[in-house]
Design a protein around this nucleic acid. Structure first.
Lengths: 209, 209
DNA sequence: CAGAGGTAAGTGAATACTCACCCACCCGAT
DNA sequence: ATCGGGTGGGTGAGTATTCACTTACCTCTG
């Protein structure tokens, strides 16, 4: 029990993970060196190796512990179809998915620069029963449940619909570059507009087969 | 006039760009060192600097000269709405977009590891009047043209529709990891299914407002 | 004193980039 | 014909720097 005044010092391990996470987002994975991480965490380089056996292991842990999960929400909704309106549910899913991708995409994308690290991350995800295409499957499952409940058209391709909705959310995270004045649309109206459009389609009424 | 037999040697500059491109895709941007590039191009490291002032400039040129363009197709279609059926056109757009993202995504994504290089690339794109969100605008323009021609429902949100279609295509390039047995769906049937789903929507008929 | 938490000062390897030089070829003056 | 020299294309052998990681040591606290 320290009675230190400021006492803002979280445990070193946490500070290191935070610092690594922050640097990955700002200066990028390649420039996130041990020296920079140590400086940002307020400790020495050697301290990193007290908590993690290697830099790669440190990054794997950042990915494992810092990236939010999307699947729980989807699983929850699929468990009880018929709750709320379909539009409300899809909007909420889109909203959360957009926020999820906004956070995780820059980090996940930078793995393409280090194919070895990417493979290790994918392995780690798989062992947790997760993976980059699990959200699509989860949303697909929810839509089929709603289909069985009669709230989604019988002939609809639920997998395609899931790809469309989540794809739009993911794309929002990278289709807008940092400097452009045309920043991404606000998440709330974005979510509502794509959910509504996916539900209703865009073809003129009398062309519906 | 050389009468050399094999004479398969393309100009060195081309070989260097090809080698850099290839290495970015296979071992990743981070491991694509000057030594590796030189080896793959069949020349010395020093030769790289005869053609490019720096490694970063080399990469910028790979991005500029090797990544395919998507906008021309969209511009062409928007110029003459009413040609072909809407479903055919959207399917073709989705097909080409999916192939485009399949090629360009791994490289574009790895830029997130080098934020400085990323900014330079975005700048270069902007100066060419291009950019990551131009495809969405282009498709949006095409859809509005079809809307004016009465082939897209008057109230439809064309921008949301464009986000959905292209988002799904982009997501296909990264939502499926390399080792998974569940590889991405074949591009032709993928394109058709998302185009059809976007056109028709998924809600039951009598819920259409 | 034992041991956890932490560090200063390295180490060898790798990296981007440079420098002095080579060589084949062309061209005009001898 | 031949020489001298410029020139585009290319290289081998560096250099300074940076990187991930280690070692030997310190300093608290129980």
């Amino acid at each position: 029990m320290e009675s230190l005044g400021p006492m803002q010092q979280k445990p070193a391990r946490i500070r290191i993970l935070d610092a690594a996470h922050e640097l990955m987002l700002t200066i990028g994975l390649a420039r996130a060196t041990t020296k920079e991480i140590a400086k940002a965490a307020g400790c020495s380089e050697a301290a990193l190796y007290k908590y993690f056996p290697s830099k790669e292991e440190l990054f794997v842990n950042v990915l494992k512990e810092r990236l939010p999960q999307l699947t729980p929400l989807l699983a929850g909704l699929a468990a009880e179809p018929g709750r709320g309106t379909l539009l409300e549910n899809l909007t909420e899913i889109a909203r959360r998915a957009a926020l999820f991708y906004e956070q995780s995409f820059p980090i996940a994308a930078s793995l393409y620069a280090e194919t070895q690290l990417k493979r290790r991350h994918e392995e780690s995800l798989r062992s947790m029963g997760s993976g980059p295409h699990m959200p699509i499957r989860g949303l697909d499952a929810y839509l089929r449940a709603e289909q069985d409940a009669g709230r989604v058209r019988a002939g609809a391709d639920t997998y395609a619909a899931a790809s469309l909705l989540l794809g739009a959310c993911a794309q929002r995270a990278f289709a807008y570059d940092s400097t452009e004045e045309g920043k991404p649309p606000p998440v709330d109206e974005f979510a509502l507009s794509i959910a509504r459009t996916l539900l209703g389609g865009i073809s003129v009424a009398d062309e519906l087969s």
